[in-house]
Amino acid sequence: MTDYNFAYLDEQTKRMIRRAILKGLAIPGYQVPFASREMPMPYGWGTGGIQVSAAVLTPEDRFKVIDQGADDTTNAVSIRTFFERTAGVKTTTATAEATVIQTRHRIPEAPLTEGQILVYQVPIPEPLRFLEPRESETRKMHSLEEYGLMHVKLYEDISRHGHIATSYAYPVKVEGRYVMDPSPIPKFDNPKLGDMAAIQLFGAGREQRIYALPPYTQVVSLDFEDHPFDPSRADHPCGLCGAEDSYLDEVIVDDAGGRMFVCSDTDYCSARQAAGHTGKDAA
C-alpha cells in the first residue's frame, strides 16, 4: 500500500514519538507525555502500542501481535493486518522469529532475546491513578518518591483478604526509583520484566504517555517482608500441551460446569504440542 506513509504515521509524528521513547529509555519507569494521535481504531484497542510500533518498525522487521497471549483474537489480527498493509512488514506468530512484538496484557512464555523489542498496550499508565485521581498530585508524588499510598493499598489488601489480592497490573519499582504500572499483565509475568534481554516499550494512547524499560533493568514487584511477592498460577497443567510452567486461561467448555485450563500463550502451547507434548484434554 503506497497511499499511506511507511507505517501509517507521518514523519513529524514519528519524530515526536521517537524523542519520547529515547527520554523514556533514559529515565526507566518515568511516564513521558506525548502528543498521542487519533488512530483508525477506538481508544482501548491499542492506540498507544500501535503508535510506538509505528515509530520503531523498519521494513525488515518481523512483527508479532498478541492479545492476552493469543495471536488469533480480533485485536491481534487487526493490528497485525494494519502493519502488513501500511508498513509492508512480514508478520509471524512464532515468538522466537519476531523482532518486534506488540502485546496486550501478556509477556510471551519463551524468553526474549537481545534483538527483540516488546511493545505493550497500556490502558492506565499511572499506577497511583485509582488512589489519587488528580494528575497534578500523582506527578508530585512521583517527583517526591512518595509511594506510601501504594503500600497502604497493598496493606489494606492483606488486612481484608489475608494476602495481596492484586492479581494483574501489579505495581513494580524500577531501579529503586519510579513505581510503574506494568500494564494489566498477570502478576505471573512480573518476574520477567526485570533483567530482560529485550527492550520493553509501553504506549498509552488515550492517556498520552510513553515509558520504557531498557534491557537488564532492575524491576521489583512491591511487597512486604512478611508477605513476599507471589507470582501465582492456576494449580493445573495445560489441558492441551501439559505444560506446568505457563500461565493458564480457564475455559468453560459446556453448560454443565465443564472447564479446562489451557496456556494463554498460543504460540508456546502449539509449539509444545508440535513437539509431542499432550495434555489430558487434547483431542
Partner: peptide, 19 residues
C-alpha cells in the same frame, strides 16, 4: 527515502540509548 531511512537511523539511536 525519509520514512525508511529515518526508521533505520532511529533504531540505531534507540539501541544505543537502550544499551
Amino acid at each position: 527515502d525519509p520514512a525508511r531511512q529515518s526508521a533505520h537511523a532511529f533504531r540505531s539511536v534507540m539501541e544505543a540509548m537502550a544499551r
